[in-house]
C-alpha cells in the first residue's frame, strides 16, 4: 500500500514537471520561430529552466522513493 501511494506521488510530481517542461519547450519553440537568429541563446536558457523544473520534479520522486523505503 505504501508503495502504491508513493508511486502515485511520484506520478503527480512527474505530471507537474511534464507540464512545466512542456510550457518551456513550447515557449522556446515560439521564441525560436520568432527570432531564429537567437536560437542558441534561447536553447541555453530553455535547458537551464528545464533543469530547474526537473530538479523540483526529482525532489518529488526522491520523496516518493523515501516513502517507499521508510527505513
Amino acid at each position: 500500500m505504501v508503495g502504491s501511494i508513493a508511486a502515485i506521488g511520484a506520478g503527480l510530481a512527474v505530471l507537474g514537471v511534464g507540464l512545466g517542461i512542456g510550457r518551456i519547450g513550447g515557449s522556446a519553440m515560439e521564441a525560436i520561430a520568432r527570432q531564429p537568429e537567437a536560437s542558441g541563446k534561447i536553447q541555453t536558457a530553455m535547458l537551464i529552466a528545464a533543469a530547474f523544473i526537473e530538479g523540483v520534479g526529482l525532489f518529488g520522486i526522491v520523496a516518493a522513493i523515501l516513502g517507499n523505503n521508510p527505513k
Partner: peptide
C-alpha cells in the same frame, strides 16, 4: 540546500 538536493536527486534518479 536546493543545490545539494538538485545534484543528488538528479544523479540518484538517473541511476534508479
Amino acid at each position: 540546500f536546493a543545490l545539494m538536493i538538485r545534484l543528488f536527486a538528479n544523479m540518484t534518479a538517473g541511476h534508479i
